[in-house]
């Protein structure tokens, strides 16, 4: 564990708290893509299946259980509690285009051809692109509530912070996880456009609006 990874994990935790807080205070899930949130549940379930047979640390265990349960809770909020505030006509990205190719890629590019290993690899690839429905939705509406942008900034910062973590681990432990690194760089890259608008607009007190 190094500082970059810890900060990354804390940013990930923060993103979830921001999202849940937004939904509770506004009593709404407006502007949030149900599809992206559902993909995160799939990501966590396929990646953390090792909870059943591997013990890494208490930290690792608690975080995994938290990510699985909080992502399930968010789906519950969107599907039941605040269902009327979700507009499926804006959330139209086809998730098949993400899930299918990620699964095929996981079958081809993996460390071992084993069920759990392929599921882990699939989860890494899927996480990298799971934000697409959310970004697509914002592209369609051309705007986002400020609190939603804070959620996205924290979520993007999480994977961005894993990059210095991997560099640090390469020099201190000599370990490289090419699948995680390549997917993590792609994942972070997808946020660059968003980060630019976030820093130049939202952090200056302006509304998040995309050019028409």
């Amino acid at each position: 564990m190094n500082i970059f990874r810890l900060l990354g994990d804390l940013a990930h935790l923060a993103s979830i708290f921001i999202l849940v807080h937004k939904m509770h205070t506004t009593r709404s899930c407006r502007g949030i893509s149900f599809k992206t949130q559902a993909l995160y549940v799939l990501v966590f379930l396929t990646r953390y299946i090792d909870l059943l047979y591997t013990w890494i640390s208490l930290y690792n265990f608690v975080m995994k259980v938290f990510f699985i349960s909080s992502s399930g809770y968010i789906l519950y909020l969107m599907k039941y509690r605040f269902r009327p505030t979700h507009d499926p006509s804006l959330d139209t990205f086809k998730v098949e285009y993400l899930v299918g190719p990620c699964f095929v890629l996981a079958l081809i590019f993996n460390y071992r051809f084993e069920v759990t290993e392929i599921l882990w690899t699939f989860s890494i690839y899927l996480e990298a692109v799971a934000i697409f429905p959310q970004l697509f939705m914002m592209q369609r509406t051309g705007e986002a509530e400020t609190i939603t942008t804070h959620y996205l900034a924290a979520l993007g910062a999480y994977r961005a912070l894993y990059i210095p973590n991997w560099i640090y681990r390469y020099f201190t432990e000599g370990t490289v996880d090419p699948i995680a690194v390549v997917a993590g760089i792609v994942q972070t890259g997808l946020y660059l456009d968003f980060f630019y608008v976030y820093v130049t607009k939202v952090l200056q007190g302006q509304k998040f609006e995309l050019p028409a």
Binding site: R5, S57, D177
Partner: peptide
């Protein structure tokens, strides 16, 4: 060797 990869990250 990534053989029996232990995935210790989240």
């Amino acid at each position: 060797d990534q053989g029996n990869a232990v995935h210790d990250e989240l």
